[in-house]
Nucleic acid binder design. Structure first.
Lengths: 216, 216
DNA sequence: GAGCATACCTACTCATGCGTAAGGTTACGC
DNA sequence: GCGTAACCTTACGCATGAGTAGGTATGCTC
């Protein structure tokens, strides 16, 4: 029983860096399947093929672990998007590349997306963490719109810009959810659809067309 | 100590229907402040000025209580929107009225909104409940677009329609979040901004303009 | 003003699951 | 070949909070 045959280590000893990644992989998987609270550290440890105290030793408490997931996935996503951005292209081209990179990422990391956005949004301790990331996105989009506007010789209040950017980011997130729930859906095509909604609208806005409420 | 002075009841006896509403009010408040898991039945009971077993007696388990909140708030919201809809108006007018009702509702029930959407989205047991509600919304929006398209003598695949509707609903939700986080913001103005994004885009789409990816 | 239903309470049980103490085992440097 | 540091384990403490048992008061009905 207790005699572990030493010639069959069964569980290999691995360097810390490797185990940490395995743990994060497992954590992302379990968190996205169960949600933050329903996920148990035991299950995560189990899934990573390791015992619980190791998780605590390497990644800290449950909250810290979740933040680590959030951080890794978030960084990956931001890198994917930033890698596609080329600051000196025309606005529609930049938007298109950004969207394509975004949906490509979500399509390739569907459960990472679930952790990142669906979970973090509700749970208080992480809402801030996530909000910061989204705000960076919003800022980028708003900056892009602002730049395009100035080129057209126009200008709009910062709030207006922010709100429009918010709407675009929100629409993208919503489609990302849709994508995550439809495994057969094509990320590229989803990006095109988003572009249709975003750009045809943004283009009108950039030209100065605005909609006004009808007189009552 | 134990001698409760009978001439000072301190806590009035109230009929069930009234207490249930008080409990739901308290539950919405606590759930939205703490999130589903972090909220405790004790706090909810306390906040409602009642003891815990009463909550169980009237509204059932914690999950059932949450669903009850979801249901009440969701119904209120749907009613607010439906009340504004007039099926025989032109598409932009219908969209505008729907949006105005929606943002008006969110502005007036900011914590109800938080419960409804932010919480339910992540937590598995309720995601379905919420998804059903959103799907009804998406269906309505898609139906509206479809109708407008047919009037223009055009037709589009059901998937395309659904996805565009999804994006619009997502953008609205996102702005609703923004509104909930900015207590000083004006719901009416937010609705106008959303209308700008949604309609100027949708209008182009309805005319048959589409965006295509640039040749590589 | 007896009976009965409904409103309401205090004070528990019990499962869950986070986080840790204390100890075993492998590999690598010297 | 031996110490030591890193890896890894089993087995537990303990708080939290969901849900309940069992009892008390109030007011309505006849």
């Amino acid at each position: 029983m207790l005699a572990r045959v030493s010639s069959t280590p069964a569980f290999k000893r691995l360097p810390r860096a490797v185990r940490e990644q395995q743990m994060l992989d497992a954590a992302v998987k379990v968190f996205s399947r169960r949600g933050f609270h329903a996920a148990s550290m035991d299950e995560i440890a189990d899934d990573a093929g390791i015992s619980k105290p190791m998780v605590y030793a390497y990644l800290g408490t449950k909250e810290e672990l979740f933040v680590a997931c959030l951080h890794r996935e978030g960084t990956r996503m931001m890198e994917a998007i930033a890698g596609a951005a080329a600051p000196d292209l025309p606005a529609d081209e930049r938007l298109w590349r950004g969207l394509r990179a975004f949906f490509g990422f979500v399509g390739a990391h569907r459960d990472g997306w679930a952790v990142l956005y669906r979970q973090a949004r509700g749970s208080q301790p992480f809402a801030g963490e996530l909000a910061a990331m989204r705000d960076r996105l919003v800022e980028v989009v708003a900056g892009m719109l602002d730049h395009a506007l100035r080129v057209n010789g126009r200008e709009v209040s910062a709030t207006d810009l922010e709100v429009v950017a918010y709407a675009l980011v929100g629409a993208s997130e919503s489609l990302a959810d849709w994508l995550a729930d439809h495994p057969e859906a094509d990320p590229e095509k989803t990006a095109t659809r988003m572009m249709n909604v975003a750009w045809l609208g943004a283009d009108q806005l950039l030209r100065g067309t605005t909609w006004r409420p009808p007189a009552e």
